[in-house]
């Protein structure tokens, strides 16, 4: 009986794939950066059907951890966790930018020649970025800096000192390359079971200012009866 890897990434679109080794057996990729919760169930069901795979044949679930916009990102991770529960598959967390780097290196080998800055949109005038320096012996992208979040102009300026000749590529992750990277990491014994979301930003929340009418310590509070007794 064949065994498969299910890959899920919702860091940009809704992307799901089934791989046997690094071979893609089935793939569903919705480009839209919206409606992740709507699309995820159908996408998983469709790749299983396309691969003629039963859930129990899935022995590993690879999930894109971001960094990415939070709301969509969480849908894919939540789905990955629960599918692994249902199928008793192992969980592998993959940094989505690493998968984009692997795709770029594989499709355009000339990029291996110089440092590669992979960026994705982080909104608010910022980018999620990670800098790579070629592939290691096991075919896994070598991380030089990042992943992190910053204003594009700042990061370009900062990196130029250390890496004068780096090249910038903007991309979006796909489940296929999340899956391929996961397979390489598993083979190399370098996979990570941590699937926690890589937010890189604290939640937008402001602690309230003390209320101007809030009572201070000089107020008399009658003790509750149970405190008296």
């Amino acid at each position: 009986m064949s065994s498969f890897l299910l890959a899920i990434d919702t860091t940009s679109g809704t992307s799901v794939a089934i791989l046997a080794g690094e071979t893609v057996v089935a793939e569903v990729h919705f480009e839209s950066g919206m409606k992740h919760a709507e699309l995820i169930g159908t996408a998983i069901a469709q790749v299983l059907e396309g691969a003629k795979a039963r859930p129990t044949q899935v022995i590993a679930v690879a999930v894109g951890r971001g960094p990415a916009l939070f709301t969509g990102l969480r849908v894919g991770i939540a789905a990955g966790i629960m599918f692994s529960e249902a199928s008793s598959a192992g969980l592998v967390g993959v940094v989505s930018h690493h998968a984009i780097a692997l795709q770029l290196y594989s499709e355009r080998p000339e990029l291996l020649e110089q440092p590669l800055l992979v960026t994705t949109d982080a909104r608010r005038g910022e980018i999620y970025w990670c800098l790579y320096g070629s592939l290691d012996a096991t075919g896994i992208p070598i991380v030089l800096r990042g992943p992190s979040v910053a204003k594009q102009s700042e990061i370009l300026e900062n990196l130029t000192d250390s890496y004068p000749d780096f090249k910038v590529e903007t991309g979006g992750a796909s489940a296929v390359w999340i899956g391929r990277l996961a397979q390489r990491q598993i083979l190399a014994g370098q996979h990570n079971t941590d699937v926690s979301a890589m937010y890189l930003r604290a939640p937008d929340a402001v602690e309230p200012k003390p209320n101007q009418y809030a009572l201070g310590g000089n107020i008399q509070v009658s003790p509750a009866p149970d405190e008296v007794s």
Partner: peptide
């Protein structure tokens, strides 16, 4: 955003269990 976590989770669970 909170609901979406539960929805994504529940769908994958249902599909995984058939």
């Amino acid at each position: 955003g909170a609901l979406m976590v539960g929805v994504g989770a529940a769908k994958a669970l249902a599909v995984g269990l058939g």
